[in-house]
Simulated assay, not measured.
Amino acid sequence: MDAAEFRPEDLERITAQAEEMLLRVEEVRKEVDVVVGRGTGADGQVRVAAGADGRLVELAIAPRAMRLDSQKLAEELLRAAQQAQEEAGRKAREVMADTLGEPMPTQRELDDRFSQVLESFESSMDERMRAIDERRRGTT
């Protein structure tokens, strides 16, 4: 959008779109907050659950798994945790795509778009202020 083409209605439209997007993002956040991924290791003797943010929310080690040497137990715990985190991430992406109908923009993309709109708005306002100043000088 060219700065000279920017109108006040454009700002209203962009603001309404931003508000709608924020509502949709809030819906997604609520759905993603309950996403849980699960993983297992040591033939099911190690079970891990992770939230969409990747944090582990549950860890269960069956007594039989304690017979493993420490290195093997650590490997099985890591494997189960990675499975849980991958599944939670996949589920979260599915929720976002289902709710938004498209991949969710990154924060950088949102920042870039906002900067473009702000720059266009400021440029348009500068041009309008110059035009007002020129009229004022011409009539004074």
Rank of each mutant, 00 (worst) to 15 (best):
M1Q: 01
M1K: 07
D2V: 03
D2C: 06
A3G: 03
A4S: 08
E5C: 03
F6C: 07
L11V: 05
L11R: 10
R13H: 03
T15Y: 08
A16Y: 08
A18E: 07
E19K: 11
E20I: 07
V25R: 05
E26V: 03
E27A: 12
V28G: 00
R29V: 06
R29K: 14
K30I: 03
V32P: 01
V35L: 09
V36A: 02
V36E: 14
G37P: 00
G37Q: 06
G37N: 00
G39T: 01
G39F: 10
T40D: 08
A42S: 06
D43S: 09
D43L: 13
V46A: 09
V48T: 04
V48Q: 01
V48A: 11
A49I: 01
A49C: 08
D53H: 00
D53L: 12
G54A: 11
L59V: 13
L59D: 11
I61Q: 10
I61F: 04
I61T: 03
A62V: 02
P63M: 11
P63N: 14
R64M: 07
R64P: 00
M66A: 03
M66Q: 09
R67H: 10
D69V: 00
Q71M: 15
E75A: 06
E76V: 02
L77A: 08
R79I: 10
Q82K: 08
A84D: 02
Q85M: 04
E87C: 01
A88E: 10
G89C: 10
R93G: 04
E94D: 01
D98Q: 02
T99E: 07
L100A: 02
E102L: 14
E102R: 13
P103Q: 13
P103T: 10
M104F: 15
P105N: 09
Q107D: 10
E109Y: 15
E109C: 01
D111C: 15
R113P: 02
R113W: 15
R113N: 01
S115K: 09
S115T: 03
Q116E: 15
V117C: 07
V117R: 01
L118H: 05
E119L: 10
F121Y: 06
F121V: 10
E122V: 09
M125S: 13
M125P: 00
M125E: 11
E127F: 12
E127M: 14
R128H: 04
R130H: 11
I132N: 02
I132G: 05
E134T: 02
R136S: 08
R136N: 10
R136K: 15
R137V: 05
R137S: 11
R137L: 10
G138Q: 14
G138M: 13
G138E: 12
T139V: 12
T140G: 11
T140M: 12
